[in-house]
């Protein structure tokens, strides 16, 4: 069956902004002076020059007691213990895998923090080290939980539960794609992603087919309907 193709002019582009809130906090941009008093400590996103505290990113100021930091709206993933992440294996090393989790540094998955196939709990032997590539190889997609954060900010992962491990993208593929497209629609309109917003977007998207969800009008429609339902939730 021939697929329908949508082509449009750049001038007919859909405006994806759903910014409704007119009040906004003070925005700092790189090089801007935050304060000239030197009783404050510099946090992330700031630096000191000539006795003044200046911002080094574009974002909003956050203050905890004397610590001032500027948080950019967008940055790489900063993991915290307990987060569930999806990552891709980039390297197989001795006793550990390197995993790309879209953070600044690659994360580590130690051989000792995976459940070996077969489910037995025992010491990891030399044979296990040789078998590592059979279990997870470069390019595999895994889901895992953050076990600890190293001092340089890189993450140590574990998959010691049946919920984690290699992602098998065969079953419910349409549902997965639909959720993916819903998330795309929400992010295109810069809406927050959390369980409720994704659930609402999923429900509102059911009137479209999965492929139709990639059309900009449909995406904005889904985002707007979701936004409205979220607003209703806040009122109630």
């Amino acid at each position: 069956m021939p697929q329908k193709i949508y082509i449009r002019l750049a001038s007919h582009r859909v405006n994806t902004s759903v910014a409704v809130n007119q009040r906004y906090p003070k925005i700092f941009t790189p090089g801007e002076v935050i304060t000239s008093q030197n009783e404050f400590m510099r946090g992330h996103g700031t630096y000191e020059e000539n006795g003044a505290l200046k911002s080094s990113v574009a974002g909003v100021r956050e203050q905890v007691n004397n610590l001032i930091s500027v948080r950019p709206l967008k940055s790489r993933y900063n993991g915290e213990v307990g987060d569930v992440v999806v990552g891709r294996i980039t390297e197989v090393q001795q006793k550990r895998w390197k995993v790309d989790t879209n953070s600044r540094l690659d994360s580590l998955l130690l051989l000792s923090s995976v459940n070996l196939p077969g489910g037995e709990l025992r010491r990891r032997s030399v044979e296990d080290e040789h078998m590592m590539r059979q279990y997870l190889q470069e390019g595999d997609l895994i889901s895992a939980e953050v076990q600890s954060v190293y001092s340089d900010g890189s993450l140590s992962l574990h998959t010691r539960s049946l919920r984690y491990g290699k992602v098998v993208p065969k079953q419910d593929r349409e549902t997965i794609s639909r959720i993916r497209n819903c998330i795309l629609a929400l992010t295109q309109s810069k809406m927050m992603l959390y369980d409720t917003s994704i659930l609402y977007a999923y429900e509102e998207s059911l009137k479209y087919s999965v492929a139709e969800l990639l059309i900009p009008e449909a995406m904005v429609d889904v985002a707007l309907l979701t936004q409205q339902r979220l607003c209703m939730l806040e009122i109630a």
Partner: peptide
Amino acid sequence: LDEAVRLHVRDVGCSTGWASTS
């Protein structure tokens, strides 16, 4: 450039409700 950055940050920030994205 500064004006464009401020406008962009304001627009994105209002849409996300200034929530933490990191």
